[in-house]
């Protein structure tokens, strides 16, 4: 009997990752939150810093001093919040290929159009809708 709540949790987690929301793109942005709620910037910072969740600092650098090993394949995240609007940041995270088909940045909230995805990740987005919103909430704070 104790298994049931755990199972429900697991199923819930799977459902969350299985792209329940279709983002509405307007010009070069997704103006509205994927969850209908604003994200949490503190959680977003942790996701950006994490090598296994956000993966952002593998390619980008950013104003996260405690992470010493950062990448230089992509622009610094510093000032992202003054270069782009919240909606523009959201589309760039959800699916940057909408703006540049050749971008090397993975689409964080898309499951289609991928080849040979490892079984553990198949059909799942890199980040959940909540996590995308948390990252957006953090990036808009990076004004300098």
């Amino acid at each position: 009997m104790r298994i049931l709540p755990v199972l429900a949790l697991l199923l819930g987690a799977q459902a969350a990752a299985a792209q329940p929301v279709t983002p509405q793109i307007v010009d070069d942005a997704i103006p509205t939150s994927l969850t209908g709620r604003p994200g949490d910037a503190a959680r977003g910072r942790a996701i950006v810093a994490s090598r296994s969740t956000g993966l952002c600092l593998l390619c980008h650098s950013g104003p996260i001093a405690e992470e010493r090993f950062q990448g230089d394949l992509a622009p610094s995240l510093a000032g992202a919040g003054s270069r782009w609007s919240e909606g523009q940041l959201r589309l760039r995270i959800v699916d940057g290929t909408r703006l540049n088909a050749d971008t090397i940045m993975p689409a964080y909230y898309r499951t289609g159009g991928l080849q040979r995805v490892a079984r553990a990740f198949d059909g799942k987005t890199i980040l959940s809708a909540e996590q995308v919103e948390d990252v957006v909430a953090y990036l808009v704070t990076l004004k300098d």
């Binding site: 090397i104 993975p106 991928l114 080849q115 040979r116 995805v117 799942k124 890199i126």
Partner: peptide, 13 residues
């Protein structure tokens, strides 16, 4: 040269 995986990268990239 072919992109693959959830991160959609190729060796060449």
């Amino acid at each position: 040269r072919r992109r693959q995986g959830q991160l959609n990268l190729s060796c060449a990239i």
